[in-house]
Design a protein around this nucleic acid. Structure first.
Lengths: 164, 164
DNA sequence: CTCATATAGTACTAAAATAGTCCTACTTTA
DNA sequence: TAAAGTAGGACTATTTTAGTACTATATGAG
C-alpha cells in the first residue's frame, strides 16, 4: 500500500552496516561485499548519502565512508528525504484549480495531514533502531510514545495540495 | 518520500463525492463531471471499488453507484488496500537468504514494524474525515489518540521480510 | 613525481510500474 | 426492443525506478 523504493531500502541497509562499526572506514566495495548489493549501486547511494550529509567521505588511498554522526542522531525521515526528496503522499503540483474540485482538494488536505503524522512517526525512528542496535538492555523504543494525528475538521476553503 | 498512486488519490476523491450525498445514486459520468476526472478513469476506479466492496452498484437504466456503507465505516487503510493491494513498504519477496545479509534483514524487520504502525494509523482515519465531513460540531478526531509504534529490540535471527 | 586506489559526478540504458484509453458484453427499465 | 447504464478485459503510452558505464578528481605511498 505504501512503498519506499528499493534504493531507499538499500540505503538503509548500507547505513546499518556503517552503524554496526562506527569507527571503521568502509570502502564502497567493502560495503557491497558485506551487503550483497552491486558495487555501482552502493557507490551511487553512498554518494547521494554524502551529498545529503548522512555520511562523511575521504578520498584517495585508504579513503572510504563513515557515518557523519552517530546512529542515534540519524532518523528514518532523514534517510527517506535524502533518497527520495520531499515528496508527499499526494502531489497536486503547482496550480490548485485545474486539478480537482473543492471537495477533492479537501481530501488532499486530509492526506497532507496524514502525511505529516507519518513523517513525525518516521522522525522518531533512529538508525540505531533500524539497524537493531538498541544494545543488550532491551530498553523500550522512544516510539512507544503515541503519535497524535490530529485530523480534525478541515477548512472550507480549498487549500493547495502541496508537497511536504 | 512516501507515496500513494494517483489512482488511489482519485479514488478517495470519488469516494468523498459519494460520501457528500449518501442517499444519491451517481452515474460514473456524473462523478467524472463533478470531480473533473476523465470518465474512463472514474469508471475503472468505481469498478475496482465495487469489486472490493466499498461501493454498491446498480446496473441498467437509472443505475449508478452508492457507498456500500456509511462514510464513518470506511477507513483509509481499506481504500489503500482496495486500490493497491496488501503491498508493504519493502518487498523482500520469497526467499530470505539471497537478498541480503542478516543485519540487512533486521533492517527489513524494522521497516515492517513501521509499516504496521502506519497502517494502524490509517485505519483510524475514516472516509468522513478524509472528505471533511466531520459535521459542524468540529469534534476532535479519533486520531488525537496516540499511535504506539513499538519498535523495540529486534530478534537476532534474521526474519523474512514479508509483505504486510 | 608518478602510480594505484579511492570517491565524485554525469550520462545513458533497460525494465517495471503506472496511468489512461478503447472496445465488447451484460443488465435493467421505459 | 432500444437506450442508458455498469462489468470486464486488452492494449498503449508515459513515467519512474534500477542499474551500468565512463570520466574526472583527490590522496597517499613509493
Amino acid at each position: 500500500m505504501l512503498r519506499i523504493s528499493k534504493l531507499t531500502d538499500y540505503a538503509t541497509v548500507i547505513l546499518a552496516r556503517l552503524a554496526a562499526e562506527p569507527e571503521r572506514r568502509f570502502t564502497a566495495a567493502q560495503i557491497a561485499a558485506d551487503t550483497h548489493l552491486s558495487s555501482p549501486t552502493v557507490s551511487k547511494l553512498l554518494k547521494q548519502l554524502h551529498r545529503r550529509g548522512l555520511v562523511s567521505s575521504t578520498r584517495g588511498l585508504h579513503g572510504g565512508y563513515l557515518l557523519a554522526r552517530s546512529a542515534a542522531q540519524i532518523n528514518a525521515a532523514q534517510i527517506l528525504d535524502a533518497l527520495e526528496g520531499p515528496v508527499a503522499l499526494t502531489e497536486c503540483a503547482g496550480s490548485e484549480s485545474h486539478c480537482c474540485i473543492e471537495s477533492s482538494c479537501l481530501v488532499g488536505r486530509a492526506w497532507q495531514r496524514v502525511n505529516h503524522a507519518i513523517r513525525r512517526s518516521l522522525q522518531e525512528i533512529t538508525l540505531m533502531e533500524l539497524a537493531g542496535l538498541n544494545g543488550p538492555g532491551n530498553q523500550p523504543s522512544p516510539l512507544d510514545r503515541g503519535i497524535p494525528v490530529a485530523l480534525g475538521r478541515i477548512a472550507t476553503r480549498a487549500p493547495k495540495r502541496e508537497p511536504l
